[in-house]
């Protein structure tokens, strides 16, 4: 059973910190799902693979820069990695949209969904061909300074993840709510026909949505890579699925919802994994961590399909 002693408070805070870190990553990825869904009602299965490619590119860049003994500080190397990963991911995402999804605009919903699954497989195999079948260990270049907070620890990487994701999300919010592009995006997601009549180039807006989502995914990929120190060609699928769960939890199509959903899901997962053993008399252990996202998904869809902040998704007459 759970005892709320001092040690337990510390465990709780530690899990909370881990959860917030995980949640920040989920949120960044979930934004990509939610924006694309909001605009063309497509679950872009391949989005998780874009995260993988982001992580892989950053792995290559970090590896190359470390091997070249450039003498650059660690943060500059990571920054360079992100700077390389972002355009690559943008290009990948743009190309999939252009080649695979755009021809299917107006087709029945299942068609692009099945295409997205196909793209996801193809990107995974491309990842495998370029970066091998084996897990790749990131060189540990960031000196992971540890801070002690209320008996728990926060690492500098965790802090960096928080700061970067807050900056990115603020930037995204500003873009969506303040710029012409953002207004056009929101108009398109409200009603593409009318937006088209208003002179908005729908195809451009959709492409922009994919590209922005891909940039966030690339950064998320760098974060995951440096946080866990490992990358693998299949890493995107589970991460993507969970991020999608987060997007649904927050209310699909809803940008603040995706942020909230990501954070909540990260925390639920971390706390769940931390306490499931205690709660079930050690029947279930932390190896069930991956189940939580799906259980949350099913519960949300069954009981509150609109998510925390979104609109209804159940069928309407």
């Amino acid at each position: 059973m759970v005892f709320f002693g001092a040690a337990c408070v510390e465990t709780f805070i530690q899990q909370l910190i881990n959860g917030l870190t995980l949640g920040a990553v989920y949120a960044m990825v979930a934004l990509g799902y939610t924006m694309v869904y909001g605009i063309i009602q497509l679950i872009n299965f391949a989005h998780g693979e874009v995260v993988m490619i982001g992580a892989m590119v950053s792995f290559s860049v970090i590896g190359a820069l470390v091997a070249a003994h450039t003498g650059l500080p660690a943060w500059a190397i990571v920054f360079a990695a992100a700077a390389a990963a972002i355009p690559v991911c943008m290009a990948v995402s743009y190309l999939t949209e252009r080649i695979a999804y755009r021809p299917l605009r107006g087709a029945p919903r299942l068609a692009p969904l099945i295409t997205a699954i196909g793209i996801s497989i193809i990107l995974q195999q491309i990842g495998l061909m370029i970066w091998s079948r084996n897990p790749l260990a990131f060189p540990q270049i960031l000196d992971n300074r540890v801070f002690h907070v209320a008996g728990a620890t926060v690492t500098s990487v965790q802090l960096a993840i928080w700061i970067v994701s807050i900056l990115m999300m603020t930037g995204l919010a500003a873009m969506v709510y303040r710029t012409r592009l953002g207004i056009a995006m929101r108009a398109t997601s409200q009603n593409p026909q009318v937006a088209g009549l208003m002179g908005i180039d729908i195809d451009r807006i959709i492409a922009a949505t994919f590209i922005i989502g891909a940039a966030l995914a690339a950064i998320a990929g760098v974060m995951v890579g440096t946080y866990y120190g490992i990358a693998h060609y299949t890493m995107g699928s589970l991460l993507g699925l969970k991020a999608f769960c987060a997007a649904v939890l927050g209310g699909i199509g809803n940008i603040p919802g995706a942020m909230l959903g990501g954070i909540v899901l990260g925390v639920v997962e971390a706390l769940g994994a931390g306490y499931i053993g205690d709660l079930t008399n050690n029947w279930f252990g932390s190896n069930y961590q991956d189940v939580f996202a799906f259980i949350v998904l099913i519960l949300v869809l069954v009981f509150r399909p609109s998510g925390l902040l979104g609109e209804r998704v159940a069928d309407r007459v």
Partner: peptide, 20 residues
Amino acid sequence: PTLKLRGDYLAIVTLGFGEI
């Protein structure tokens, strides 16, 4: 509980079920 969901949501829920 899930068949009343719209098609693409059903897809994801079944996928999650497979993973579970």
